[in-house]
Design a protein around this nucleic acid. Structure first.
Length: 436
RNA sequence: GGAGAGGUCGCCUAGUGGCCUAGGGCGCCGCACUGGAAAUGCGGUAUACCGCAAGGUAUCGAGGGUUCAAAUCCCUCCCUCUCCGCCA
């Protein structure tokens, strides 16, 4: 249940087109519609029989209380009728259960249709919405000749800020060990980001568990489809979180907000664990693609009419962090086939990293509208006493650390080998330069 | 991990097979009384699904079983509390 049966019935054309735009199979929509009709028919029959059985059982009780012999013919006839209804109910319910399961499976495979203002197409249709800052060159001509910026792993090695070899020894490749100033930089960034989001942006800070149970993993949609991306602890049936989105969004699973509680806006730090199955060989150098990294995530619960604007605000909050860090970046509006299955609209923030001369994705800000909320039954009452409606959920990184660190190292390295500390981090780092 | 006690409507609680269509209290909402309020009285106060509607079905931590009939009996699991053990 993600798109919702009501919406499926009301606007099948839009759902079908949404699937096509995202490169998914639209025939699932028709299969779901016919299965839904069948399900409703079965449900009607079953419910009618259950009403009859309930009435008959009640009559048994009344007859016995009225003086009929519990083993007499009158009671026996009622019993028999009830048993018979029970048998048909059992058969119908079995069929109904199968139809339900199939329908649910189909519903999970219908993507969330993108918002109307999202460009249709693959990644080549992504739009650069805006850019900020100066895109520094790798090579700089100076009085002392040409200075070439180093990639972040060389900067880090020189300044002993992280140790990938030992990380590989103690855990495996893709598990960086941050050392000395590198470790302090992690703390500084986490602290800085949380401080801005809480003190200035009014978000509530959350420090969530780093593992979640099966129900939570299912809630945000990590299972069944993305199970291979997560580390699993089978003995205890737990999953290491791939993002704080999972525990934080699940905070309000099966809950109903009062209208005046919304919006609820959280900022959460968590370590993030990703198997990145099948990605071996790509970005093997440095910390651009790792199995464990740190991230401050923003998670919003909004009234439906406010979610569009909330996405713009959310994205701007992530931009604030990049601007204060003095890192050049661009904002991309993701096209339908590059935005993911569950998002209605998504912006990616990419930071410029002059050492590797690449734009690095450090944030992904999405509006899920009611798609996620439906799966997790997160609702609110528009008016006191009114019928609950689904909230809209949004989330975005603010920011992911590893790549931000890479960009800082490559942007702030000095020709003399030192690293200038971005001004906003100096009080946290308690120094202006990191020296060898 | 071991032993014991528990999990019922927003909160507290009654309920050991059919009079449970889950009762009562608190809280909340509405109405009456009032100059206004308090107190009091009356009524209303879960969610999902099906149905044009009338209405029906399901849910008493979760799942399964027994029965014509389960909050109630049986089994498995989860969670909370107390004590013990272990432990940053």
């Amino acid at each position: 249940m993600s798109i919702g049966l009501a919406r499926l019935r009301e606007e099948p054309e839009r759902i079908r087109q949404g699937a096509i735009d995202k490169g998914e199979d639209p025939s699932i929509v028709d299969a779901a519609l016919s299965l839904d009709a069948r399900r409703r028919q079965l449900l009607g029959e079953s419910d009618g029989l259950k009403a009859r059985r309930n009435a008959l059982s009640k009559q048994v009780g009344e007859a016995i209380r009225g003086g009929a012999s519990p083993n007499g013919p009158e009671v026996a006839a009622l019993r028999e009728a009830s048993t018979e209804a029970g048998k048909r109910i059992e058969a119908l319910d079995k069929e109904l259960g199968e139809a339900d399961a199939q329908l649910q499976d189909l519903m999970l495979r219908i993507p969330n249709p993108a918002d109307p203002d999202v460009p249709v197409g693959d990644e080549t249709a992504n739009q650069v919405v805006r850019t900020w800052g100066q895109q520094l060159p790798k090579e700089v001509e100076g009085a002392a000749g040409t200075w070439v910026r180093k990639p972040h792993w060389e900067v880090a090695e020189h300044l002993r800020m992280f140790d990938l070899e030992r990380g590989a020894k103690i855990t495996g490749s893709g598990f960086p060990v941050y050392t000395g100033a590198g470790s302090r930089l992690q703390r500084a960034l986490i602290d800085f980001m949380l401080d801005v989001h809480t003190d200035e942006h009014g978000m509530t800070e959350i420090w969530p568990p780093a593992m979640v149970n099966t129900a939570s993993a299912r809630g945000t949609g990590q299972i069944p489809d993305k199970e291979d991306l997560m580390y699993v602890v089978p003995r205890d049936e737990l999953y290491l979180v791939p993002t704080a989105e999972v525990p934080v969004t699940n905070l309000h699973r099966d809950e109903i907000f009062e209208a005046d509680q919304l919006p609820v806006r959280y900022a959460a730090y968590s370590p993030c664990f990703r198997r990145e199955a099948g990605a071996a060989g790509k970005d093997t150098r440095g910390i651009l693609r790792v199995h464990q990294f740190d991230k401050v995530e923003m998670v919003f619960f909004e009234k439906p009419e406010a979610s569009g604007e909330a996405l713009e605000w959310l994205t701007a909050r992530a931009e604030v962090i990049l601007q204060r860090l003095g890192l050049a970046y661009r904002v991309l509006l993701m096209a339908t086939r590059d935005m993911g299955f569950v998002q209605a609209k998504k912006y990616d923030l990419e930071v410029w990293s002059p050492g590797v001369e690449r734009w690095l994705e450090v944030s992904s800000c999405s509006n899920f509208r009611d798609y996620q909320a439906r799966r997790m039954a997160i609702r609110y009452r528009p008016e006191p006493g009114a019928k609950p409606e689904l909230v809209h959920t949004l989330n975005g990184s603010g920011l992911a650390l590893a790549r931000t660190v890479a960009a800082i190292l490559e942007t702030y390295q000095q020709p003399d080998g030192r690293l200038a500390v971005p001004e906003v981090l100096r009080s946290y780092m308690r120094t202006e330069f990191v020296e060898p």
